[in-house]
């Protein structure tokens, strides 16, 4: 099991951070999604405004509670408001 989680950034989040994906170290017991979002905002201040209006997915499932823990090997996705078409 890899020691990191993968953070995937889409749309405006990708543009703000300048990358589509980040490897993020998480402890074996995991990290609350809320704490991961705060850490992302601290590490990438240009991403912070987008994070405030985004939804989050853990392993492709929409997170309804940010208390859920992100563990090593998980994929955490940042979804800013959608705008296809």
């Amino acid at each position: 099991m890899p020691p990191d989680a993968t953070v995937r950034l889409f749309g405006p989040a990708r543009e703000a951070a300048g990358t589509a994906a980040l490897r993020w170290p998480v402890p074996p017991e995991g990290l609350a999604a809320r704490d991961l979002v705060h850490a992302l905002a601290r590490a990438h201040p240009r991403l912070a405004p987008t994070l405030r209006v985004s939804r989050f997915l853990l392993n492709d499932e929409l997170l309804t509670r940010l208390a859920r823990r992100v563990r090593p090997g998980d994929e955490f996705a940042v979804h800013p408001p959608y705008g296809g078409g």
Binding site: F10, G11, P12, E15, H79, P80, Y82, G83, G84, G85
Partner: peptide
């Protein structure tokens, strides 16, 4: 279909 696609499907444009 087009209204819901724009609002609910994870697609972004730049």
């Amino acid at each position: 279909l087009i209204d819901e696609l724009k609002a609910t499907v994870p697609i972004w444009k730049a």
